[in-house]
Design a protein around this nucleic acid. Structure first.
Lengths: 245, 245
DNA sequence: CGGGGACTTGATACTGTTCAATTTCCGTGG
DNA sequence: CCACGGAAATTGAACAGTATCAAGTCCCCG
């Protein structure tokens, strides 16, 4: 974890940090990529615990995470709280705010992070000129909908063990996609945050991790985790309730 | 419930059924509305039980519901099933399919219904010319994300009673917004479908409804329901777990 | 090095599920 | 129009899974 940031959210001039990385995974011609560069972006650094935005704040931009780790959470008026996602490098935050021009959740850095601000007006304007960008934006929003539906399935029909296995495998897959180890990584969030995300209490998360360790499925040391038996973990997620049918 | 449809999904010529209703809630100039008309749309009728599309099918269009009632569901490979939403007139179905060009859920008519097909290519093309349409499309997708997050909160942190109260109040609100009674309506779905949506078993749904009835919160007769005490229902949803804090 | 939050673990309580037996409702065919 | 049959819904009793409460340990950050 880098310690380079001495002051919280400061602006950094960044000429080659633009929409370009927003579109990394899409197919663009060289000419189009040059146009993407024309949209100026602001890169910001955040320290652990900093808020990228608060619920209720006016919406102006989406944010592309360049490095680091965030969580998003909704705070119900009655103190109820739900972590709605954990986001890492290359992912986009803030899509929920488009609907009402107001952020509907908080985004909090779980480690020192850098994000690229993408002014939404400019994004819309440019995507009117570049069909590939337009399509890419639509796909990103749609992916978020699909992801949410996956979590609904998890919350609606899985047991604690299945939820946690699914969670670990999801993290593993995303780390792997970024060139990090798929089998050993550090959890950036607390047991309570994991629990909130998975609809479990922190004690249940802790107990289930301990059980996984006893079963030689994983090796846990605090926030460090190693997946010892991917296929059995996968089996857990695939498993339907033993008593069903 | 109308019985006019003797054959399943048939096409109906419909010159004034276009993108226009897709945009009912947005602000468009008269000139823009005329342009919206130029996108030809196909109106189709579906009978109860008909599939609007299946999971895995190629994505070509979004669908605007003109009348009737649908459910969307994801079927996990292992037989696990989750109802991800109930949609009624004026709502848009199919947004999840944009991300992969393939439908990721089934959409099933819960009563005889009419939908308007919106070819997505044309929608994108036109939205490049009409910023208001572009913005509207983005808002619709974002709203779906916000809705999903609300369900995550419900599934992740509410008790059975709270979930059911929230569900009934949500239906009430949506019926009211369409000019129907907010306090008396007919449930179009089975207890099992409600349960799947709310992450509960059908027996729990049934029991909780019975308990609501004993408590004079609602009056239930099969699929007909009447909300007798809105404020207490609202209180249930707002309530945090009695033992928390 | 000290302090406090994070985590683990145990005992108990409780919510919701499972299994099972009826009853009710509704669409279909006679 | 009524009778029939199967799906949907209700209800009860036992059980399972997770939450809750509590105590103690670990570890990280300042």
């Amino acid at each position: 974890m880098q310690k380079a940031f001495t002051v919280a959210p400061k602006q950094i001039a960044c000429s080659n940090c633009s929409l370009r990385e927003f579109c990394l995974s899409a197919d663009f011609t060289q000419a189009e990529l040059l146009q993407l560069e024309t949209v100026t972006s602001i890169k910001r650094a955040y320290r652990r615990g900093d808020y990228l935005y608060h619920s209720g704040a006016k919406f102006t931009s989406l944010y592309a995470i360049r490095s680091g780790f965030f969580k998003t959470q909704v705070l119900h008026e009655n103190g109820r709280e739900q972590v709605t996602g954990f986001q890492m490098a290359g992912e986009i935050i803030g899509l929920d705010a488009i609907s009402t021009d107001t952020h509907t959740c908080d985004a909090v850095a779980l480690e020192d992070s850098e994000v690229c601000e993408l002014p939404f007006d400019q994004l819309e304007e440019l995507s009117r000129k570049l069909p590939a960008l337009q399509r890419h934006l639509h796909k990103i929003m749609s992916s978020e909908i699909v992801r949410d539906q996956g979590i609904m399935l998890l919350l609606g029909s899985m047991r604690a063990e299945e939820r946690l296995a699914a969670f670990l495998l999801n993290l593993s897959q995303r780390f792997a996609a970024r060139g990090y180890s798929a089998i050993a990584f550090k959890l950036r969030m607390t047991r309570q945050e994991i629990g909130s995300y998975l609809g479990l209490k922190l004690e249940t998360v802790s107990r289930t991790l301990s059980y996984f360790q006893e079963s030689d499925l994983v090796e846990v040391h605090g926030k460090s985790i190693e997946l010892l038996d991917m296929s059995r973990l996968l089996g857990l997620v695939g498993q339907q309730r033993s008593t069903q049918f």
